[in-house]
Computed example of a mutant assay.
Amino acid sequence: MKQLALFVVTTFALGTTAFNTPQIPLNWTTQFACAVDVPSRVLANVVTNQYTDNTPATCIQRCDAATFAFAGVEFSDECHCGTGLVGTPASAPVSDCNMACTGDPTLSCGGSLRIQIYKSPALPPGAWTLQGCFLDTATSPAFGSPVVHQTFNTNLDLVNQCSNYCAHIGYPFSGVENASDCQCSFGLDPSAQIRSLSECSSTCPLPAGAGNEFCGGFERLEVYKFSAN
């Protein structure tokens, strides 16, 4: 009984004082510090789960891994993942998000029909167009800094794998090199040197026996640029 009483007192005390500012990982941003949720939910195509380690950060990480663009914490242990917003949620006073997270009682995780909403940096729907084949060496990089490098378990359909990954982390330029390396950037290096497309001659397999595609080459980056629909 003494342990239960201590828990109740601690929860009440946190509810009447300011919570700590949560860490927001993966370049996500806060969309609503506290918003009104409704029984039909304000996140589109929402998937809701309850976790004993729920925090804004763990919820964001789970939603991001499942390729959702929105995350929300509510009622202490609820993590909501969605593809967008249903209209514009009504803002609520931050004091309404007064329930401690199950994963960290120094942080708030919404309240009763009160949700803290976070958004991924993912690009909106759009298309990728080939920009050309570029020299890519340590002294003559194709992409300007910062550059994110990513490898996958397989190079099957590498061009699409890479473009989807770059879109998910919010980078509008993608590139594949030597049939293995995926790169994401915000643009070409000012001194980028274009080469003949024939120099991007490494190949990667396509799904379902559809043949192969070109995937850059040795020190040659096959570059694609995103444009929104």
Rank of each mutant, 00 (worst) to 15 (best):
Q3S: 11
V8A: 13
T10G: 06
T11S: 10
A13D: 11
L14A: 06
G15R: 09
P25I: 15
L26I: 11
N27C: 10
A33W: 11
A33Q: 13
A33K: 15
A35Y: 07
P39H: 13
S40Y: 09
R41P: 00
V42C: 06
L43P: 03
L43Y: 09
N45Y: 06
V47S: 06
T48Y: 07
N49A: 14
T52E: 12
D53A: 05
T55H: 05
P56F: 08
Q61P: 00
R62S: 13
T67L: 15
F68A: 08
A71F: 09
V73T: 03
V73E: 01
E74I: 04
F75G: 04
D77P: 00
D77E: 12
E78S: 05
C79K: 03
G82H: 05
G82N: 10
T83P: 02
L85H: 03
T88Y: 01
P89R: 05
A90N: 05
S91N: 10
S91V: 08
C97T: 06
C97G: 04
C97E: 01
M99P: 00
C101I: 10
G103E: 06
D104S: 13
P105I: 15
T106E: 12
L107K: 09
G110W: 08
S112R: 04
S112Q: 08
L113D: 05
Q116M: 14
I117Y: 04
Y118W: 05
A122Y: 10
P124E: 11
P124G: 10
P124K: 12
P125H: 11
A127S: 10
T129N: 12
L130M: 04
F134M: 02
D136R: 00
S140N: 11
S140K: 13
A142Q: 09
G144T: 12
S145Q: 11
S145H: 03
S145W: 04
S145Y: 02
P146W: 13
Q150V: 02
T151Q: 01
F152L: 02
L156K: 03
L156Q: 13
L156C: 07
L158W: 01
L158S: 04
Q161V: 00
N164D: 12
Y165N: 08
C166Y: 12
A167F: 09
I169G: 08
P172R: 14
V176Q: 04
V176C: 02
C182R: 05
F186Y: 15
F186H: 06
P190M: 13
P190H: 11
S191K: 14
A192P: 04
Q193T: 15
R195A: 12
R195E: 14
S196D: 15
S196M: 08
L197M: 14
S198K: 02
E199A: 01
E199W: 00
C200H: 02
T203E: 02
C204R: 02
L206P: 01
G211C: 09
F214Q: 14
C215E: 01
C215W: 02
G217F: 13
R220H: 07
V223P: 09
V223D: 01
K225C: 06
